[in-house]
Every structure is written in structure tokens, then in C-alpha cells.
């Protein structure tokens, strides 16, 4: 192979890395068949100053990615893995809009209370529900301070094969684990038109999210509970 050809390939690879979704270059893909590593702590930074009140691109992307599309008569019984919350400071009138989902706590109350161990935290910090041993007691929903979990109230027919869901089980945001294990960012982060959701490895000082967290003031929601949330918010 000639030297100019080598340079051309290197150039094409660099262009490719820039052209694909930003999330791809942020995290290393897991090796197939290997367990999640505790060296990694996945997390997300939401910049609420960029988040538009009327925009729900993240919510739509989550629904499409995870197959949350069944219509339900009573919306209170439907699954919402991510939702937009509009906030108004009662003292000052300042308004915010932000996406709320499972905060992937370091000390998740849902894991503590689950009688069977179906609620669990992966080594890389992603909090999941094992659908094989969830008995549908909903104790985790009582325990979650973020109202992040949904119970499947009706039979499902349109599941995404990569996202196991089923009647009578509890579910929540998985950080699109089917994507993160391939080195992709969660669907919501990719879909955000403002680039307000930054996903990555909190443990890697070189990651974009770790660098950003070092630079800007961020907040953990219900920080008083000291749950060590993996999701942080900027601007609230």
C-alpha cells in the first residue's frame, strides 16, 4: 500500500467519525458476550438552557426506539420512559423545561426494595429490570423518587425484538442499553435537535461528559436523597 493511499484512508476514517452521530465516538462498544465493566459509569448531562419547552423529540425517539407505541385510553396507565417536565420557580417565575427519566442512581431505591432482585444495577451503572423475574409487585414504583417507572397495564403486541417488554412487569429507561452496548448513545440523546443531552462515561476523564461536568455547575435532582444519580442537569 502506498503512502498517499494510507493518508487517504486515514482522512476518510476521520471524516466518517465526524459525520456519524456524535454519540458514536463518545463511548467504546462492549465486546459481544462480555459483561458490563465497573470501570465504566454511564451517565448523562442535560443542558436545560438548550431544552425547548414545546419540543419532545427525545420522547418520540425513545418511543420509536423502545416500541412504546400502544395506544391506551387512560394515559396514566401508559408507559412513559422519558417525559418532558415544564417547571416554573414559584418564587421567581423563572421557567425551565427538561426531560425526566430514570436517573440511574448509584444507590437506587428501586433495587433496594425489589423482593426478587429483578431491579438491578449493571456494573456500568445502568439500572435495569430483569423481565424474567419481575413479579409485578410495583414496590419499586413506590420507592422511585422520580416517578421514572411504568407498569405495563395492558397486553402488548408491538414490542421491539431488542427491547423485552411484557404485561404485568415494571419497566423504565434503560439508557437504550441495546444501543449503548453497541457503542451508540441513547436514542433520546441522538434525537435532541439542540444537542442538550450529552451521554458518556463519567469515569473516563477524557470523555466529553466528564470534561463538561468539570467545567459547568450541574445539579442532581433530589440531591438531598444522596442517591448519586447518573443523570445531571445544567441550568436548574
Amino acid at each position: 500500500m502506498s503512502a498517499p493511499e494510507n493518508k487517504r484512508r486515514a482522512f476518510l476514517a476521520a471524516v466518517g467519525a465526524v459525520a456519524v452521530a456524535p454519540g458514536i465516538s463518545l463511548i467504546a462498544p462492549s465486546q459481544a458476550g462480555t459483561a458490563a465493566s465497573s470501570a465504566v459509569r454511564f451517565g448523562m448531562l442535560v443542558d436545560t438552557t438548550k431544552c425547548s419547552p414545546g419540543c419532545d423529540a427525545c420522547v418520540k425517539a425513545c418511543a420509536a426506539e423502545n416500541g412504546l407505541v400502544e395506544p391506551i385510553a387512560d394515559l396514566r396507565q401508559g408507559s412513559q420512559w422519558i417525559r418532558k417536565i415544564d417547571l416554573v420557580d414559584t418564587a421567581t417565575g423563572r421557567q425551565h423545561s427538561l426531560p425526566m427519566m430514570c436517573q440511574h442512581c448509584a444507590k437506587p431505591p428501586c433495587v433496594d426494595v425489589c423482593p426478587t432482585g429483578a431491579s438491578f444495577k449493571r456494573a456500568d451503572g445502568i439500572v435495569l429490570v430483569d423481565r424474567h423475574i419481575c413479579i409485578g409487585c410495583r414496590y419499586c414504583m413506590m420507592a422511585c423518587p422520580y416517578k421514572a417507572r411504568s407498569f405495563v397495564h395492558q397486553p402488548l403486541t408491538t414490542q421491539n425484538p431488542e427491547v423485552p417488554r411484557g404485561l404485568g412487569c415494571v419497566e423504565a429507561c434503560t439508557f437504550c442499553v441495546q444501543r449503548t452496548d453497541r457503542g451508540l448513545a441513547p436514542a433520546c440523546a441522538d434525537a435532541c435537535p439542540q444537542g442538550a443531552m450529552l451521554f458518556g462515561d463519567l469515569n473516563d476523564p477524557q470523555s466529553a461528559i466528564a470534561k463538561r461536568l468539570k467545567e459547568v455547575a450541574t445539579t442532581q435532582v433530589r440531591a438531598d436523597l444522596k442517591l448519586g444519580t447518573g443523570v445531571r442537569y445544567q441550568g436548574i
Binding site: V111, D112, V113, C114, P115, T116, G117, A118, I133, C134, I135, G136, C137, R138, Y139, F151, V152, L167, G168, C169, V170
Partner: peptide
């Protein structure tokens, strides 16, 4: 329970930090 058919799971999987588990 959402999955009442999984009574055996409840009996065979035990999480010691869960008050439900103690019960």
C-alpha cells in the same frame, strides 16, 4: 401481582435489602 403466575419466582429469588423480601 402483575405476574401472579411467578409466585415460585418470589419464593426462590430473595433480595435481603427488600422489606417485601423479608416478608
Amino acid at each position: 401481582l402483575g405476574r401472579a403466575d411467578r409466585l415460585v419466582v418470589a419464593m426462590t429469588h430473595f433480595n435481603p435489602t427488600s422489606v417485601f423480601g423479608w416478608n
